[in-house]
Design a protein around this nucleic acid. Structure first.
Length: 105
DNA sequence: CTCGTGACTTACG
DNA sequence: ACGTAAGCCACGA
């Protein structure tokens, strides 16, 4: 199982209406590969399986989505999160701390 | 193996 | 708040 696979597995455990951060995912695999997490996400071979839109930055900002075409897709990401019950304002998660799902420690 | 790249984080000015 | 720098790790060429 490669690093990316672990990330997907951990992310899959995130329940609906919750979000997680790159850092938490990195912790889930006992690594500090914050960047590698993002690298794995953009690859995202398991689109619907892995809710990559539930992954946000450590400060509660949306972060990015699908690397390149940034801008439009970000909007989509926000829309999906809002559908899940997450409230977003100015590309930031409201009550981010409360909705954050801590994978484990 | 070495290099370049990146959806990152933390720290500093 | 914003820009920059350094640290960090996985992956493809």
């Amino acid at each position: 199982m490669i690093f990316s696979e672990k990330i997907y597995a951990a992310l899959r455990k995130v329940p609906k209406g919750r979000v997680t951060t790159y850092k938490e995912l990195a912790k889930a695999v006992h690594s500090k590969a914050y960047r590698a997490v993002g690298t794995a996400m953009k690859c995202n071979p398991n689109a619907p399986k892995v809710p990559c839109h539930r992954v946000i930055s450590s400060d509660g900002s949306i972060g990015g989505y699908m690397g390149k075409m940034k801008g439009k897709m970000i909007k989509t990401k926000i829309a999906m999160l809002q559908k899940e019950g997450i409230e977003i304002k100015n590309n930031k998660i409201l009550d981010f701390r409360k909705k954050l799902y801590k994978i484990k420690k």
